[in-house]
Amino acid sequence: MNYRLTTSLLTSALILGIAGCAKPPAADAPSPQAAATHAAALPAKPPISKFKAYTQRFDGQTLLTQGHATGHVGDVFFTHWKDGGEASFKLDEQGNFMIDWIGGDYNYVGGPGWESGDRNRVIGYRLDEDSGASYATLYGWGYDKTMDPADPAHLVEYYIVQRWAREPGQGGEQGVTFTSNGVEYTTYRTVRTQKPSINNTATFYQYWSRPKEQMPLGVDHKIIFADHVKAWEASGWKLPDLDNFDASDDPTYQVFAIEVFLVENSGTAAGRVWDAGK
């Protein structure tokens, strides 16, 4: 992800707007006024004080079109971020989502999930539509503030890619091949040097797991995250803390994300995400 979280974007996140897009929300979606009133009336979930953008909570189907927004729809956490262009994110309390984008020279990443990572989480998802996203992926961050910031291992951005239009882990170091839930994956590691991240501008690693074949649409899938952590560690790549608010700009969230960047064509990705370990 080309992560450019700036002060202005955080400010816009605090002034959350719910707007229309090419595909209108369902008839029972809340009005902007009702959603704003509801968000103000409900307590934050979770009660995070450091990252004001994360104190938003909405009820019912919610449509996001602004530059940056994070929070909860019911109990479902979400992140929605773009550095330009036109992309929108619709989400309900059951984890059903739809992301629409218009092609152009920009980066978008968004999706439903959890406000912190969990090494033992089992993620369930189903994609019913994907018309060319750069990546459909489990996505998140790990961060250890006690480690030397000059060591790229102190901050890790990870991808367990399920579908792609761009080559995952391109130009990176190859690790191991392993099987998880009947799917064969290969690990890769790349490095980002002095790039924007959840902790300001930093040098950090990206860990990748790429399946041998792209996962089909219209089918329920499971991602057993612990298997990928073990495979990365078998490659000698340690994953730092997944559950903290220590970074400067964002906590270490974990979401099923749709990422699009430098896309020529417009498209849609739609499906559902849930905790398959319960």
Rank of each mutant, 00 (worst) to 15 (best):
M1I: 12
N2K: 08
Y3I: 13
R4S: 13
L10F: 11
L14K: 07
I15Q: 15
A19S: 12
G20C: 07
G20K: 09
A22G: 09
K23G: 08
A29F: 00
A29W: 00
P30W: 05
Q33T: 13
A34S: 09
A35F: 00
A36H: 11
A40G: 13
P43C: 01
P43Q: 00
A44E: 03
K45T: 12
K52S: 07
K52R: 05
G60T: 04
G60R: 08
T62F: 00
T62C: 01
L64F: 15
Q66K: 10
G67E: 09
H68A: 14
H68N: 09
V73S: 05
V73P: 10
H80G: 06
H80F: 15
H80Y: 15
D83Q: 04
D83C: 07
G85Y: 12
S88T: 12
S88E: 02
K90N: 14
L91I: 06
Q94L: 10
N96Q: 11
N96L: 01
N96S: 05
F97H: 08
M98P: 04
D100A: 05
W101T: 05
G104F: 04
Y106V: 03
Y106W: 04
N107K: 14
Y108V: 06
G110K: 06
G111M: 09
P112N: 03
E115G: 08
D118P: 08
D118M: 11
R119A: 11
N120S: 14
R126L: 10
L127P: 10
D128L: 08
D130A: 14
S134L: 07
A136Y: 12
A136L: 15
T137N: 12
T137H: 10
L138G: 03
G142K: 01
G142V: 05
Y143A: 13
M147S: 06
M147K: 14
A150H: 11
A150G: 13
D151I: 07
P152Q: 04
H154L: 03
L155M: 09
V156Q: 08
E157L: 09
Y158P: 00
Y159I: 13
Y159M: 14
I160W: 04
I160D: 02
Q162M: 12
Q162K: 06
W164N: 00
E167Q: 15
G169E: 09
G169D: 11
Q170F: 09
G172Y: 04
E173D: 14
T177A: 10
T177R: 03
E184K: 15
E184S: 15
T190G: 03
V191I: 13
R192Q: 13
R192F: 05
P196N: 11
I198H: 00
N199S: 07
N199I: 04
N199W: 06
F204N: 11
Q206N: 13
W208F: 08
R210W: 07
P211L: 00
P211H: 02
M215Q: 07
L217S: 01
G218V: 04
V219C: 00
K222P: 07
A226T: 01
K230V: 02
A231I: 01
S235D: 12
G236P: 02
G236D: 04
G236N: 03
L239V: 09
L239H: 02
D241K: 09
L242P: 03
L242D: 08
L242Y: 01
D249F: 06
P251E: 09
P251K: 06
Q254L: 14
V260I: 15
V260C: 15
F261W: 14
S266E: 07
S266R: 06
T268A: 08
R272P: 07
V273Y: 01
K278S: 09
